[in-house]
Simulated scan of single mutants.
Amino acid sequence: MTIPKKASLFAMLIMIMLVAAACGDKADNTTTTEEPAAKETTTGTNSETANTEETENTEPASEESKETDNSQDVELGTTEKGSYTNDYFGVSLKFPEAWEFQDAAGMNELTSASSEAIAGDDETKKKQIELSQTKTLNLLMASKYPLDGGQVGPSAMAIAEKVSLLQGIRTGKDYLEATKKFMVDSQFPYDYKEFTTETIGGKEMDLMQITMDAGDGSTITQEYYSTIIEGYAFNFIFTYMDDKTKAEIDTIKKSVQFK
C-alpha cells in the first residue's frame, strides 16, 4: 500500500514515540535522582551484550536502586533473519525471513533522526526526548518494507526503557498512560481506544491501541503492549493497515514466548 509522503513520515515517527513518552512531565523530577541508562550502550550490533560500566559514586545507593538496578546484566539481544531472542528479558519471537530488520545501531540512527521532527522548536519536548533516549534500549525493528521508502507495511518493534517508582511507573498501564499523555500533548492526529490487557507468550501485558488516517481512505493501526520486567518498561509496538497485514502481525504475536 502506497500512501502520501506525509502519512508515511508520521507512520515512521509514531513507531518511536514510546521511547520519548514515559518520562514525560516527570523528566525534571527524575534527572537528579537516577543514573542515565546511556551507560547501557553497545559497541557493535544488538547481538552483543550492552556495556554498562558505572561511574564511581561514593554515596550509598538508595533502596529503590538496589531493587531495580540490574543494568550490568542487561543485553540488547540477538536479531537474526526471521527471529529475535533476548535472555535478559526472557523473550523470543519470529517474523517473516523476507522482512527488513534493524540492529541496535540502525534503530539508534532512526530515533536520533526522528527526534528533531517530533520535538520541533519545543525545548521541553526536546529535553523529554533526550532524557528518555539515554534510558532506552532499542531492541528490535522488523518491517515488511524498508523504512526509508514511501510504502508503509506491517512492522514489529521491541524497546525497553528504564523506569523508576519515583516516576510513578509501576505497571505497563502506567507507562502507556504517560505515553498517551505525551502523544495528546504533541497534538498528533491519533484516535485512542480504551486500555485493555492481553496475554502474549504467557505474559499479561497492558495494551493501548491507536489509529491514524493514512490520507487515502485507509487507516494505520498500532498496538502498544507494555509490562514491567526487571525495572524496565518492556514494550512491543505492532503496526498494520488492514485485515491481511493484521493477520501477519497476529502470526508474529503468536510466536512470542516469555520464559
Rank of each mutant, 00 (worst) to 15 (best):
T41M: 05
T42R: 03
T42I: 14
T42W: 04
T42H: 04
T42Y: 02
T42G: 10
T43H: 14
T43Q: 12
T43S: 10
T45C: 08
T45E: 14
T45G: 03
N46K: 04
N46H: 08
S47A: 13
S47N: 10
S47P: 10
S47L: 06
S47D: 12
E48A: 04
E48C: 07
E48Q: 07
E48T: 08
E48H: 05
E48P: 01
T49M: 05
T49S: 11
A50D: 02
A50C: 07
A50W: 02
N51R: 10
N51D: 11
T52G: 12
E53S: 11
E53Y: 08
E53W: 12
E54C: 02
T55I: 12
E56M: 06
E56R: 10
E56H: 07
E56I: 14
E56A: 11
E56K: 08
N57R: 06
N57I: 12
N57E: 13
T58G: 07
T58M: 11
E59Y: 09
E59D: 15
A61W: 15
A61E: 13
A61T: 08
A61F: 15
A61N: 12
S62L: 12
S62V: 15
S62H: 14
S62N: 12
S62F: 13
E63P: 10
E63Y: 15
E63W: 13
E63I: 14
E63G: 07
E64I: 14
E64M: 10
E64P: 05
E64A: 11
S65N: 14
S65I: 15
K66P: 15
E67M: 10
E67N: 12
T68V: 13
T68F: 06
D69W: 01
N70I: 15
S71L: 08
S71K: 02
S71Q: 04
S71F: 02
S71P: 04
Q72V: 09
Q72A: 13
Q72T: 15
Q72Y: 10
Q72F: 04
Q72L: 07
Q72H: 10
D73G: 13
D73E: 09
D73A: 06
V74Q: 02
V74P: 01
V74G: 01
E75H: 05
E75V: 07
L76C: 05
G77W: 02
G77D: 05
T78R: 03
T78Q: 11
T78L: 09
T78M: 03
T79R: 03
T79L: 07
T79Y: 06
E80T: 07
E80Q: 06
K81Q: 12
K81Y: 13
K81M: 11
K81V: 13
K81H: 06
G82R: 00
G82Y: 04
G82N: 08
G82Q: 00
S83A: 09
S83D: 12
S83N: 09
Y84V: 01
T85D: 12
N86R: 00
N86Y: 02
N86S: 08
D87G: 03
D87H: 09
Y88E: 01
Y88V: 01
F89T: 00
F89L: 03
G90R: 00
G90Y: 00
G90A: 04
G90E: 00
V91G: 00
V91A: 01
V91H: 00
V91I: 01
S92D: 01
S92I: 03
S92A: 01
L93W: 06
